[in-house]
Design a protein around this nucleic acid. Sequence first.
DNA 1: CGAATTTGACCTCA
DNA 2: TGAGGTCAAATTCG
Length: 287
Amino acid sequence: MDGCGGEKRALASELAQVQAMVRELEARMDQDLPAAARELCGELASSVDRSIRIARACGWYSPGSRDGSPRSDGAQHPGGGGGGNAQSKRRKGTPCVRTQVRVAAVQDMAPLDDGLSWRKYGQKDILGAMYPRAYFRCTHRNSQGCPATKHVQRADGDPLLYDVVYHGAHSCAQAAHPGAEHLRRQLQPEGHADVEQSSPLAPEAECLQAGLEPVAPYSFAPAPGAGADFVGYFPLLSPTGLEWQLRSCYAAGGLGVGMDYEPHFEEFYKNATDPFQWEYSDLYAAN
DNA sequence: CGAATTTGACCTCA
DNA sequence: TGAGGTCAAATTCG
């Protein structure tokens, strides 16, 4: 997959920069400088973005390059309460490609307004999970036959965090939504979605990623009116379509950034010369 | 009054 | 058989 020596070096350098910025971020947060921290987050996002581009340029983003090491969906469900594997039960013909994101919502605000219209069609208590899972489908399912659905569940550990799993692509007019389009462009070509089960992809090839509105990918969008006490409203979509979570715990008193996959990042940095190794083996292996 | 939500029942799969 | 996912009638909302 290579012949990208220069890019590798550029990527390693970029990642080193990211690492430095993370440290700086921690420092700023320790100093109680949320504005400065947020500014740094923007730079951080840009740097990550550049890294992704470099990786793409080298073709390190290829759906087929994933190895087969085990990583269940359940493992991706943070906390998940150790509950059952939500995706293990799947109907025949159900879309097998999905996107999972994690978002933090501001209390008393509609949590997951992703700019698209959804209609709730069910809710279910999930074994081992503290909160029920809500099921949404595209409002235009009937009128336009749009197959997009999403599942939303509160994270056990933090009631302000939601795990959102998108299934299928919008085939309705909403598909033209800029946010949805952006996401599709980001994810579709590289197939950066978790692929369910190991069944052949063929029949589900059209099941692309559904609409999500990353206000600006990897950027932070503090809630309107959020003051000193704002709890991050970070619709942060990882470029890989996996769930990163970069959140602020400022309201709780201690300002801190928690990043899911923190261990992976550490490893990421350590092995910056082959940065995507862990990604494929650890993160991408959904099966 | 139409659209959205709620919720118990049913379906599918492992 | 149990658990997740979906259906659809009843209810609520704007």
